[in-house]
Simulated scan of single mutants.
Amino acid sequence: MTFQSVYDFILAWQTLIGSLLALGAALWTVWAMHDQARSDDTRHQNDRARKKMAARARTPDALSEMSAYVRSAGKSLVIDEKRPLPPVAALTTLKDTIEHIDTKQAEQTFELVSWYQVQHSRLMGSDKPKKSNETKCSTISPFSELKSIGFLIMRETSLSKSDLSNPHARKWWEALRMP
């Protein structure tokens, strides 16, 4: 096999050889892109897992702050103390946490934040309750405020378990069912 015979073979089949080389390069490119996409997906999954762990690490502190707020709010209604300041850091943490936790827990956290917003609105509005024209009595009773606070505590204490197996949640639930 001489140089001339190799040259003649390449000259005769150069289109096929060029096509096979292009096909090989294209396959190698597709493999490299697939490998990069897999790497990006793994990195994304790791980032999500870290954010979820961070959210779960911040949640107990936020729930403790919410619990302290709820107790202070209940105490302010019972012994007529100054209204507590809203737990802004806890709310921010819980709202941020919703994005990174599982759907069921995110829904429960959303409900907790929603219950807080309703309870806080009622608590802040309880200094000047609206009067009914017919009965001339307050339409916002301390019991309804305590009931709202009780529901918030029930939501908070049963956040980790959706059933009422938590004794605190069961105690509040039974107390709130009474008229």
Rank of each mutant, 00 (worst) to 15 (best):
T103I: 06
A89V: 07
T135E: 06
G24P: 06
P179E: 11
V113D: 01
I140E: 08
P87A: 07
L146M: 15
L146N: 07
R58P: 00
L77V: 14
L91N: 08
V70C: 12
T93K: 07
D41I: 04
Q14H: 14
A68Q: 15
Q45V: 08
T29F: 13
R122N: 09
R50N: 08
S76W: 07
R38D: 12
D8L: 11
S144L: 09
T103H: 13
T97G: 05
M154I: 04
G125N: 15
V70G: 05
F143D: 00
A22G: 11
S132V: 06
L85S: 13
D47K: 11
L20Y: 00
L94W: 05
L11P: 00
T103Q: 05
A169M: 03
H100S: 09
R83L: 14
T2C: 04
S76E: 02
N133C: 02
L94C: 05
H120L: 03
T2M: 04
T59F: 09
R71S: 10
R43K: 13
T2S: 14
P86T: 06
S158M: 10
T29L: 15
P87L: 04
W13Y: 05
M1R: 02
W13V: 06
F151C: 10
D163H: 05
Y116N: 03
K95D: 13
D41Y: 05
L21F: 02
P60C: 04
K75I: 07
N46K: 14
T139R: 00
A55Q: 08
R83Q: 12
M154H: 01
F3R: 15
R43F: 15
S121I: 00
Y116P: 05
L146Y: 00
I153E: 14
